[in-house]
Structures are given as C-alpha cells and as structure tokens.
Amino acid sequence: MVDVVGLCKYLEGPQVVSAKKLTRKMAAAAAAGVAATLMLTACQAEKPDAQGWDSGQVTNWAIDEPVTEADVLKAVTAATTLKDLPTKVRKSDLVAASGDDQKAWALPRCTPTIEQTKLDDLGPCTLGDLKSEREIFVVGDSAAAMWYGAFDLIGKRKAWKVVMLTKNNCGPATLTYYQWQRGRTFTECTEWQKWRAGVIEREQPGIVVLAGWYGGNLGPGKKETPQVWRDGLVKTATQFPKNTKVVMLGNTPHPATPPAECVASNPSNLVECASDPEQAVPDQTGWSRAAKDVGGTFIDVTPWFCADSCPAIIGDQIVYAGKNHITQKYGRYVSGSIEKAMAPLLGA
C-alpha cells in the first residue's frame, strides 16, 4: 500500500522530505500517474492543517497549565515596544497568517456552506470533554468560530463539552444579515438562526457564549448601531432555556490591514505593524448592555490584545489571521484569561 502521507510530503517540495526517502512503492505509484483528482483528495485528507491547527495536537502544558491572565497582560505590554521578530515565529507562519485562510482559525469539518441552514451531525463541531454531560454552546459567525481553540482547552480543563454552533457571516444577534458574496439578503442565515434556537432549546446547555463580528454585516445602507446590536443580542438570549447562563464575548480589535503581512515585511520594526486602539477597538457597549439586560456575563477581550497599541505579535504568538480573525493558536494562548472570567459559571 502506498504511503500517502509520505508521498504528499514529497509533492509539497524538497524542503519537506527528500525524494531519496520515498519507498520504491511510493515512487512507482507516482510514476504510474496516479489520477490527479484522487491524489489531490488524498493529500488534502492526509495533510495536517497549517501550523498544527488540529485541536487534537495540543501539548499537555497547554491543557494543564494555562497561561495566566497576568502573564498575558505582561506580554501585551511588552509587545508594544517589541521591534525584532521573535525567533520562535517562523516566516512561513507569517505568510500563512497574512491572508484570511480558514485553516488559521476555522474548526476543520465544522464550517457550514452558504446554503446550509442546519447541521445533521454536531459531532465534528463538538470539542472539550466529550464525555461530560455539561455543555457550553458557542454561537455566532466566523468571529465566534475562531475561538474554538480556546474553548476546546477550557472544556478539557474544566470538564465541559463544547459545541460550536457557528456559521460564517451569520452573527449571534437575531438580525437580518446580508450575504455580501451573493449580493442579497442572507435568507439561509435567518433559517439557521431558527434552527440553532431549536437545538439550544432541545439540548438545554448550561452556558451559551455569544460571539461574533460587530459592524457592517446588515447590508448596504443599513446602520449597525450599538443599540441595534444590543437589541439583537437580547432577542437571541431571551430564547434560551431559563437555566442557561449567557456570556457575551466582546469583539477583538479590527486592524485596518493584515498585521502578519506587515510583520513579514518589517521583521526588525514590529512597532510599525501595531494598530491604534482608538481606531481598531470596536464599540463594545452593545455587548455589555445586552449582558446587563439579560443578567449575563460580559467579557471585554481588549486588554488581551491592546495596551498603548494593539501589537501584531504577542508572547511569541501571531495574533491575527488576515485582518478579520485571530489565529486559533492565539485563542488558545488567552484561553486561561477567558476561563478566569467565566470561573463563576464553570464551577469545579
């Protein structure tokens, strides 16, 4: 049988594995002209995600000893004056994070298509402690999905099963969204919202975390004010079961340009790649007021990203994938900070 993994590595280029390390059987299979489509499918299936994004590839220290919030805050402050690229940050990773590649932030096999209005199987979207009867649901769009690495670790550490109910461009607030790729109302999102409300009612999770992108998803000419966002979040939360605790996870900064791209071009002058908090940090009042209205918990994530500036590299971590998402690796890095904020809800 052909060693598909080894052959795929060879096809990636000589910097990964030398042709001399191929077995004769592998070389024969390649020379025989394996059908391109079959080989592509096999390589995509066998090839590990870029930068080790697979949630199963987590070191024990990351599970058992989360980075403390105090250490995260120190790292953020230190990063504001950091000039030279840390040696642990690979240039190849910067290139990968320069574009908005879903591999950097999306949970594999848990990204519904535009047309999908429901999931028939929550298995691929389930993380954390899979044996636990306690459930956390994370609800929102791609800016919620990007937190899967953090909640995976929190679930494993605190014995909670985590279900990611996320759909790109379909936010956590119950509103009518716009599908920019199709240039029309996102009707599939409206149906998705109804479906996810039914799933939450059926599953009765102990905690629901609302997260997502605030600003600009309602369509041309429609103003997304903090009040509109607040009302939409409240409408979502009031549909939850009576005993479900609600967490509003605030927005991450919105850099004007991809920070990793800037870092790749300025490895000895990283301060040039930091964002101004006054420009990058979105209005959080919609989130905080909604949390107050429903008796929920608001988590302001800004201090984990910004001090005097919002650096592109923090604690040897690439923070952003493109400019619209954080890398799930950075999400893992601040998982201890989220865990601390949610401690009263998580229990022992």
Rank of each mutant, 00 (worst) to 15 (best):
T59R: 15
T41Y: 14
A159H: 15
A144S: 14
K74Y: 04
A97H: 04
G6S: 07
C306P: 12
T59K: 14
G128V: 05
A144W: 07
G149V: 02
Q193E: 07
M146W: 12
T166C: 09
Q102F: 12
S98T: 15
G295L: 09
K194T: 04
L82S: 01
W180V: 11
C110M: 05
E203K: 14
A70S: 12
R196V: 15
S132F: 00
A30E: 13
A143P: 00
A96I: 02
N169A: 15
W105G: 02
A144C: 10
Q179L: 13
T257I: 11
T257K: 15
R230W: 03
G286F: 05
L233A: 09
A70P: 04
G140L: 06
E188P: 01
V199A: 02
W287F: 15
Q51G: 08
G286P: 06
Y214M: 04
I63H: 10
T297G: 02
E339V: 02
S98N: 13
D120I: 03
S98R: 13
G221C: 03
V34E: 07
F186N: 15
M342V: 07
Q239R: 13
C262L: 08
T185N: 07
L249Q: 06
S55D: 11
R230E: 15
A264P: 01
P311H: 06
R202N: 09
N324V: 10
V301S: 06
T187L: 00
L127T: 03
C306A: 10
P311E: 01
A290P: 10
K74P: 00
V209Q: 08
S337T: 04
L107H: 12
W160T: 02
A145E: 10
T190K: 07
L38F: 09
A28D: 11
K161G: 01
G322D: 12
L85M: 09
L85K: 11
D152V: 03
T80F: 00
S18P: 01
G128T: 03
G212P: 08
L233C: 13
E272A: 14
P259S: 08
A173E: 13
C125L: 06
V138K: 06
G215I: 07
L346V: 09
A211Y: 09
K167N: 10
A291R: 05
D316M: 05
L346K: 07
S55Q: 11
K242Q: 13
E224T: 08
V208S: 05
P205Q: 02
G52P: 11
S309M: 05
A264Y: 12
G198F: 00
L233R: 02
L175W: 04
P344K: 06
G296M: 12
W192Y: 14
D300F: 08
L7E: 03
L346I: 01
R196C: 01
A79Q: 03
P303L: 08
A290R: 12
A27Y: 10
G123P: 01
D71R: 12
L270A: 07
W229R: 06
V234D: 09
A143N: 15
G13E: 09
E115R: 10
R182F: 01
D100N: 14
T174Y: 14
A211C: 06
P220K: 02
Q193G: 01
M248P: 05
A291P: 11
A291W: 11
M248S: 08
W160M: 00
P226T: 03
Y177H: 07
P220S: 11
A36N: 10
Q328T: 15
A29C: 09
A70Y: 05
A78W: 02
